[in-house]
Nucleic acid binder design. Structure first.
Length: 666
DNA sequence: TTTCGACGTCTTTTT
DNA sequence: GACGTCGAAA
């Protein structure tokens, strides 16, 4: 294969690299995906076994796409082991469960389960009865997770980010230990555990030797977003052969809040002596006008591999612009109009995106697009499985998989009338002593008749029993469980018909699976996004849809025209970041990521009036746009609505007359 | 012991 | 608007 036909010289050099460590610093739009894709292909064309290549990426979608494209040229590429660190961890842990000393059929705690589990442990330890204010479950999760991901003692995390909880350091340290014990007993693993136990597994000499022997070539994408533990996992994987390629862009490190250390990519060469470093600076994505803006942002950054983006064809285009609006509705209306205009000029809808710092900023735009029947999909923000009714139904599924799952039982039992926390705990205790669902059913039968929840309990376990027999056919299994859940759905929610639709969507997703375990795994590791339901529009699906996305979820993607909304101080950068210079730098990198998503056109905007904490406030433009040379376009003159002339006093009706008129209308 | 309503607090980004 | 806490009633 003549690589130079498809790649520039720096890319060829990276693709042809075979042995030893390699770091590829790939600026935005410099074709790093292509490099990974072609390197996989090149290795395979040079007789490397596909199963000896491991490709670790940030999202499962990223690895799937890269491997799928490579597989078009050689189907063997499809056999490459690819996925996120977390999914790799799951496979590793299942395979070596026996040797590590953990249960083989474990359950993954998602971002809602983990805090709940922590609270249960903390409650059992009596920490909520202490005379000190103990963190609530979401803070517990953040504190313990930060300690794990940054590999720092709790006290240090508290000092930096939670000074108000410094008095709880001892208790939290103990909670961390007891929570770990609890999970081990229950067979639960939270996200952090998947990484932590992977590292632990790889520290066992025999396991490490076996894994190293299998994976001769390690590739890691988005290296700038790896955290301490992930960095250590990479080091362990590559220890013997040193065949590790890290690809990333230090300027695009945007997951510091999750413990990512952008120092990882900076220190990669010193970690692997003899490491070759290749920079990709030629940009194939954006016009020079957009890149100039990106370069301005790059210049302001402190710690970095210095680089400058240059457009491959020196392509000029429309200058990026900044627009100021009075309020979000006005901004949304303008965006919708502009989208229609671009569409009529021939830009397909799927080539347009609206990006924002936090998901709620897109509400107005969503409404406006829906009103105009423009199809769109929303990425980022709430997950499908965050909705209470979806979690309820998934809990039923979890019980089929593991009849001793305490968190799932708790959720399911609490639905029953007459069951509160106390009763649920007591029931669960006995349930866990039973061998299987059949014995659980017998236990329910043996309960005294006067328990008001007995009838419901029996209906529930009958449904579970029936569903258990249908696990080979998840679609009918699902409908059995949905029938059992239906009464609770109707009883609990006014808008149950809407929610029923969500559950029907879930039914379609569930029906695509053949394996219950895989279904639960995917829902935990890669929950379907709630907003990826395109609005029915006048255009056909082939046109695609406009993408509304958080900047985080837009990483690695590109569009012809990009609208970046909400450029207000306190929103972007968020008020949270203002206390520390490091956090503001991360926001700045995030801004850089957002800008460099655009190929041809880039529109920035902000509104003076905005909502924050329930009150309307006057916003200043973001510091990010103030220093940039941007074409500032004034908003269109506001539409003035004429005020009706005030009524003459004599014309006004008395209260009695009003009531009389109303009564006639009843 | 459960259930319900009133009130206060916090509200980012994701595997 | 979601979640937690507290007190009162059933």
């Amino acid at each position: 294969m003549e690589l130079a036909q498809f790649l520039n010289s720096a890319q060829v050099e990276a693709v042809e690299h075979r042995q030893g460590p390699l770091l590829v610093i790939a600026g935005a739009g410099s074709g790093k995906t292509r490099v990974i894709e072609y390197r996989v292909l090149n290795l395979i064309l040079n007789q490397v076994e596909p199963t000896s290549i491991l490709l670790l990426t940030f999202t499962r979608r990223a690895s799937r796409e890269m491997l799928a494209r490579a597989a078009k040229q050689d189907p063997k590429c499809g056999l490459v082991e690819g996925g996120t660190f977390h999914s790799f961890g799951v496979r590793l842990l299942r395979r070596y469960a026996g040797r590590i000393g953990i249960k083989e059929n474990f359950t993954i705690l998602d971002s809602a389960d983990a805090p709940e589990a922590m609270r249960r442990v903390a409650t059992a330890l009596g920490y909520y009865q202490l005379p000190l204010r103990f963190p609530q479950k979401s803070s517990l999760q953040k504190i313990l997770s930060a300690a794990t991901n940054k590999q720092k003692p709790i006290a240090e995390i508290l000092e930096q980010d939670y000074p108000n909880f410094q008095a709880c350091a001892k208790e939290l340290e103990n909670l961390r230990l007891q929570y770990a014990r609890y999970k081990l007993e229950m067979g639960y693993f939270d996200y952090d555990d998947l990484l932590l136990y992977s590292k632990l597994a790889l520290e066992i000499k025999e396991i490490r030797a076996e894994v190293q022997a299998q994976f001769q070539y390690i590739m890691v994408d988005e290296y700038q977003d790896t955290n301490q533990v992930q960095g250590e996992i990479v080091a362990l994987l590559a220890q013997s052969h040193g065949n590790v390629m890290a690809v990333g862009d230090d300027a695009q490190s945007i997951y510091g809040f999750r413990g990512a250390q952008h120092a990882n990519i900076l220190s990669f060469p010193s970690l692997f002596p003899g490491c070759k470093v290749i920079k990709l600076e030629t940009n194939y994505r954006s016009t020079q006008d957009i890149l100039d803006l990106g370069n301005q942002v790059l210049e302001g950054m402190q710690q970095k591999y210095s680089k400058r983006l240059v457009s491959a064809e020196r392509r000029r285009g429309q200058a990026p612009s900044l627009r100021v609006f009075k309020e979000p509705a006005e901004e949304a209306a303008w965006i919708a109009e502009k989208i229609q205009e671009l569409y009529h000029q021939g830009v397909p809808l799927r080539e347009m995106a609206v990006l924002f710092r936090s998901s709620h900023l897109s509400f107005q735009t969503q409404t406006e697009l829906a009103k105009r029947k423009l199809p769109f999909e929303v990425h980022g923000g709430k997950k499908f499985s965050d909705m209470a009714h979806v979690k309820d139904l998934l809990s039923y599924f979890k019980l089929l998989y593991n009849p001793k799952d305490e968190l799932a039982w708790n959720r399911v039992l609490m639905l029953l009338t007459g069951v509160g926390p106390k009763t649920a705990s007591r029931l669960i205790e006995t349930i866990q002593a039973q061998a299987d669902l059949l014995e659980v059913h017998e236990f329910f039968l043996s309960l005294p008749e006067k328990r008001i929840y007995k009838g419901e309990l029996l209906l529930l376990s009958a449904a579970l029993g029936q569903a258990r027999g249908q696990v080979h056919d998840l679609a009918s299994c699902y409908s059995t469980l949905l029938r059992a859940y239906q009464p609770y759905l109707e009883q609990r929610y006014d808008n149950w018909t809407q929610r029923k639709k969500d559950l029907e969507t879930l039914s379609q997703i569930a029906g695509r699976y053949h394996d219950l375990h895989q279904l639960l795994l995917d829902f935990a590791l890669e929950p379907p996004e709630r907003g990826v339901v395109a609005v029915q529009g006048v255009t056909q699906a082939a046109e695609g849809a406009i993408v509304l996305s958080t900047i985080h979820s837009a990483k690695g993607l590109e569009w012809g025209a990009v609208f970046l909304i909400g450029m207000m101080e306190g929103i972007f950068p968020t008020a949270y970041s203002l206390k520390s210079p490091e956090a503001i730098e991360e926001e700045e990198r995030l801004f850089y990521v957002a800008l460099t998503r655009a190929k041809n056109q880039l529109f920035l905007s902000f509104c003076h009036y905005g909502f924050a904490g329930g009150i309307t406030q006057f916003n200043q433009p973001s510091r990010f746009v103030q220093n940039l040379s941007l074409e500032r376009e004034d908003r269109p003159p506001p539409v003035r609505t004429k005020k009706p002339p005030p009524l003459e006093a004599a014309q006004a009706l008395s209260k009695e007359e009003l009531l009389a008129k109303l009564a006639k209308m009843f």
